[in-house]
Design a protein around this nucleic acid. Structure first.
Lengths: 367, 367
DNA sequence: ATGAAAGCGCTAACAT
DNA sequence: ATGTTAGCGCTTTCAT
């Protein structure tokens, strides 16, 4: 059976297509009897309006985009048949065990915050995470479908952002205030301040002076900002930042493990590993703890993000918590604001962070 | 400046719009020199094709829908100005504390699984979670925008599903095999078998005989199936299911707390509270533990889902783990399969579950 | 290899 | 209050 269109409904209800459209969009412009007749036809034909047609005609999609190309470690899995597996496994799941892989997308929160805020304002949300394929293609694809898009800073070349922004508003998430010429709207957290506070705390609360920074990808503005905070804290303590070791990570847990192994074999172990994000810190723990390195007694390890997994690790991870949900909501609001007032000056929102002191840095926590 | 269209690009490159379209969709049907000229124009004009127009013409959207109307407890928050809050709070976050609200959407996993699988196959994903507004409107909205949609079973009236399915394929997620007449594709987990196994375990491993079931919403097929498993286990042990107390919850933590309070004041406390989902079980713990009820010594509490929070609770929650990510992936594959083979017989996928025995039922776990 | 032209299903003037 | 009609920007035959 063919899919019903306005024409079918109009014919069925013996009205014009304009009336059908009105019944759906501005019911009060239509006489009640007519309205009911049309609605009956809609029911009878199983009519669902085509968003493609509607959006084309209306010159807006009612969709917002969120582009966070995957920085998660998840592995690909191939196809599998549709199974009917009624089996039940029973296992004893001890504390600290890992019977079930914990969800670990660090921006789950951003996603949820965005989704809800978008619908709240009558917009749908289209997300692009996965690190598959070509990020550029993904973004272009999304850009054609939405009224505005929020993009993780540093995830695509500036040139592409410029390109896309000629069609729709682009909001940057994370990273630093952009260079002057690129005046996108921008929402982020206090990366620098947070890392400075954390580092300063480490410096103050111990004999600690030998800190190493484990960076994220070279092109991550978030990583850079955090590094800046690290540097500022060292300077504030009268230390020479240039003397501090920098390890080049990439935000992934896997990579961090490799770094930790190198550290172990090289024997060059700093007093504290200040990591640019939680996954990196967790990767360090993965290797150091089993190797007999005591955390925090031998080495302090800290992260940044405040992901759930950091509360579950042994030891639990000292970190800087970012308000992810709020970040997502703010990104949505920035897009809406820009859509409504295309000519307003660039928005820059900066959300506060929270240093969470836990056992990976504090030893026995003070009570 | 106006948004560039095919016409602009065509004019700029001195070709017809058909050629522009070809360059983008089937580059090899175009002479290389022409192709490059067009691509240059695309760059020069910042052209991004309109998905609305494309999808309208192509009669497909390249988007899949996921509809999971919100069953999460999250609260609404109002508007807020765009702040520039550079502040950093520093707190000591003790084990068991709750300095940061943990993400708690029980189907985060479904979402992630779906999203990745969809993009892997060249489709975008549009999600609808929020419990705002009218679920029916939300679903209709989504249905108009996608090539197929996966819907949480029981979240919308069957009538609406029928309606929507006249336009696009509908895949049900969760709940039981549907009654014969409604032959939607269907992916779910072994609810019944899982709950039967868990309940049987409780029955076998203790003096326990006095079990109560804490149900979800009356119209939730998942809750019903789990109840069935509960009943089967009782029968298997020669007990009368009709004698078991049933408490009417609604899957929410809040509601569970109310139930627990009632239990406390009424004084009628069963030996075990077998809850239809984790959030309900956690709500029970929220009230019982502070009230001095010992879990599991006085009361055993179990959940269903395997959400992260259940690994963090005190005591940690015995539960039945559902493979959420896999569920999401399977739903996507079902939609794709249906799109490709519209006439194949209904798909029914049933994924295995895993009983996780933790301290809320086991006392000291055997080593 | 390229162009001309006919829709795709809807919205929004403008008429009546 | 309802109908007529002209697009919206693209894909896709069908010609050339």
């Amino acid at each position: 059976m063919k899919i019903a269109t306005v024409y079918d409904v109009a014919a069925h209800a013996a009205v014009s297509i304009a009336t059908v459209s009105r019944v759906l969009r501005r019911p009060h412009d239509v006489r009640e009897s007519t309205r009911e007749r049309v609605l009956d036809s809609v029911q009878a034909l199983g009519y669902v309006p085509s968003a493609s047609a509607r959006c084309l005609a209306a010159q807006r999609t009612g969709v917002l985009g969120l582009f966070f190309p995957g920085i998660d470690d998840e592995d690909d899995r191939g196809e599998a048949p549709f199974v009917q597996d009624l089996s039940v496994t029973m296992v004893v799941d001890r504390a600290g065990g890992s019977e079930v892989a914990p969800p670990n997308l660090s921006f789950d929160g951003v996603l949820r915050g965005s989704e809800r805020e978008a619908w709240r304002h009558g917009f749908a949300l289209m997300v692009g995470v996965g690190r598959d394929a070509n990020p550029a293609d993904m973004l272009r694809d999304i850009a054609g479908r939405v009224d505005a898009v929020a993009v993780l800073a540093g995830s695509v070349p500036d040139e592409l952002l410029k390109h896309v922004s000629r069609r729709i508003p682009v909001v940057l998430i994370g990273g630093p205030r952009r260079c002057a010429e690129m005046d996108f709207d921008h929402v982020s957290v206090s990366n620098r301040e947070g890392m400075r506070a954390l580092t300063a705390h480490l410096l103050e609360s111990g004999d600690t002076t030998d800190l190493a920074f484990v960076a994220g990808p070279a092109d991550s503005p978030d990583s850079s900002e955090r590094y800046q905070g690290f540097v500022e804290a060292l300077e504030g303590a009268g230390l020479d930042p240039a003397a501090a070791t920098i390890l080049q990570g990439d935000f992934s847990r896997i990579r961090a493990r490799r770094l930790a192994e190198t550290l172990l074999t090289t024997g060059r172990m700093p007093r504290a590993l200040v990591c640019a994000n939680d996954r990196t810190a967790l990767g360090m723990l993965d290797v150091l703890v089993p190797a007999g390195v005591r955390v925090p007694e031998d080495v302090i390890v800290t992260g940044f993000d405040g992901i759930e997994t950091g509360r579950l690790s042994t030891p639990r991870l000292t970190t800087v918590y970012q308000p992810m949900v709020e970040l997502g909501r703010t990104a949505i609001r920035a897009m809406l604001s820009r859509i409504e007032h295309p000519d307003q000056p660039p928005i820059t929102a900066r959300l506060p962070v929270k240093v969470l002191l836990r056992e990976s840095s504090e030893g026995t926590l003070p009570s």
